[in-house]
Design a protein around this nucleic acid. Structure first.
Lengths: 110, 110
DNA sequence: GTCATGCTTAGCCATGTGGCGAAGTATCGC
DNA sequence: GCGATACTTCGCCACATGGCTAAGCATGAC
């Protein structure tokens, strides 16, 4: 849909419960595709699609050693969400603060 | 997809750029469907789908007065994301802290 | 070499999503 | 009442998503 929308890709990746389970598990440290797949009741090929989706969103990185592919969580990517949230809050809190000030302390103005 | 997955619904809602624009705009205060639609280059019926998606995710509430439907942001719903993020971070930071402590301060003091 | 293991690729399918135009309904302003 | 305004409903369509089975390929164990 969107051509270059990193934040959107991250949100889309997090929208799926299966993928949030993976993120959660990877929070405890790297794991192989097989280990991760054991936590969900779907077939491996289906599971691999989720892994690829997570990798394309940038939330995880993977690398293959021998026949085992290991997945690692990229926390910086999760920070993208945090930043967006913080920015939105900053904007509407700025506005709220001004209203608050007028209500709670009329002397305090700009 | 998921039967009852509030967090997933919120993430899915935020995955679309159009809907993030709406959220952003509503951060500045309530607005009518028409006002909101003016910010994006799609037809009204298409836009309405986004409004409904946002409402079903719980991120906004809407009410109709006369022929105008007014949308309001529900910040508590956004907090759902914040909470999830905080919880995940709490988990893996707990682990990291323990490692950090061993590396940076073997004596383990306050 | 042979067999098990651990992905990986290649279809296929049902459903969901996001866009459209056309036409309908319910106020509001005059 | 009549026209403009502000949605709203109704198909319809292309493509994305998430699941499956079956078969393939590379590596590790023996």
């Amino acid at each position: 849909m969107a051509k270059h929308d990193p934040l959107g890709d991250v949100f889309a990746a997090l929208a799926d419960p299966t993928r949030r389970i993976v993120i959660h598990r990877l929070g405890a440290g790297p794991a192989s595709v097989g280990e991760l797949a054991a936590d969900v009741p779907i077939t491996l090929p289906s599971f691999m699609k989720h892994v690829r989706a997570l990798e394309e969103s940038g939330l995880i990185t993977t690398s293959k050693t021998g026949r085992v592919r290991t997945c690692v969580l990229d926390r910086d990517r999760l920070a993208l969400v945090d930043d967006w949230l913080a920015e939105e809050r900053r904007l509407w809190e700025g506005r709220t603060d001004r209203l608050e000030r007028l209500v709670t302390d009329p002397r305090e103005h700009a």
